[in-house]
């Protein structure tokens, strides 16, 4: 029971960390960034390079953010910017970028599965249950990410301008907000977060050139049911992530893998706004 609750909490935390970057981009730009999976892969390989170079595994997180952010800048400038008026095409173009990133990584690192060093090993005793220390640490990291983003959006001028662009871009532009710059910074930040997410999940699984793709679809569905709110994303992660854990343990892991996508599709059918408030 306790192990299962911990599973749910940590799964929700991982999903939250993976989906925030996508949510940010979707909220501000109304664009689904299908390169998110590719950028996660990039972050995963940044972590691999970091640990192979013998650096502290924790350093993988900022390095992955750097890799993701720089790639994001280039993507926004050359690919996403011309497609603001064609959101469905933006999905396709960013999916193409995902393919490009995957193939470049394959050319550089080969196709094989590789493993990174985890920054935290062993287990922690919690409520009489010994549980993976790293998974527990992820809960803290996801919380820090969520709080930092909330603080950024609620407490800074850039955040205010970003929220203005989310609500009404034309009006924001009329008030002198450089919405192009807001979009650029948002996409960069979203991509950096994708990189971080890639680095965070590598100690849990392995690194391979298509590691980001399975996460992409779940993150995408979570973002769609959450609208543009970090709070409803948290709710969606707990509910749908929890459902995934329950289905996987009580029925079958295969069905568990489908839970988020199928439930999200049904939720959106019944309530197009998903978990977002009006």
């Amino acid at each position: 029971m306790i192990a299962q609750s911990l599973d749910i909490v940590t799964t929700a935390a991982i999903l939250y960390a993976v989906a925030t970057g996508l949510l940010l981009v979707f909220g501000v730009m109304k664009i689904i960034n299908f390169a998110h999976g590719g950028l996660m892969t990039l972050g995963g390989y940044a972590a691999l390079v970091t640990t192979q170079a013998g650096l502290n595994p924790w350093l993988a997180i900022p390095i992955a953010a750097l890799f993701g952010g720089v790639a994001g800048m280039a993507i926004e400038r050359f690919v996403v910017r011309p497609l603001y008026s064609r959101p469905l095409d933006a999905i396709l173009a960013t999916w193409g970028l995902s393919i490009i990133i995957g193939q470049l990584i394959t050319l550089a690192f080969g196709r094989g599965v590789q493993f990174t060093q985890s920054p935290l090993n062993g287990t922690l005793d919690l409520f009489g249950e010994s549980y993976s220390a790293y998974r527990l640490a992820l809960v803290g990291i996801a919380a820090v990410l969520g709080l930092a983003l909330t603080a950024l959006l609620q407490g800074t001028r850039l955040g205010l301008e970003t929220r203005a662009v989310i609500m009404n871009e034309d009006l924001a532009r009329g008030l002198g907000i450089n919405s192009g710059l807001v979009r650029f910074l948002t996409f960069t930040l979203g991509s950096a977060l994708a990189g971080v997410a890639g680095a965070l999940i590598t100690p849990l699984s392995s690194v391979d050139p298509s590691m980001g793709v399975p996460w992409l679809v779940n993150a995408f569905m979570l973002v769609l049911v959450s609208g543009a709110s970090l709070l409803s994303l948290l709710f969606a992660c707990v509910v749908l992530g929890g459902a995934q854990v329950l289905v996987a343990t009580h029925f079958s892991p295969v069905l568990g893998g489908l839970t988020i996508a199928v439930l999200a599709a049904i939720i959106l059918r019944v309530r197009p706004k998903g978990f977002a408030r009006d």
């Binding site: 011309p82 497609l83 193409g96």
Partner: peptide, 20 residues
């Protein structure tokens, strides 16, 4: 194999952006 995939991916992005 990988170069070919890379070419197709690049061409695809180019077509979507420049020649919809």
């Amino acid at each position: 194999p990988f170069v070919w995939q890379l070419i197709i991916g690049t061409l695809f992005v180019l077509v979507i952006v420049a020649f919809p």
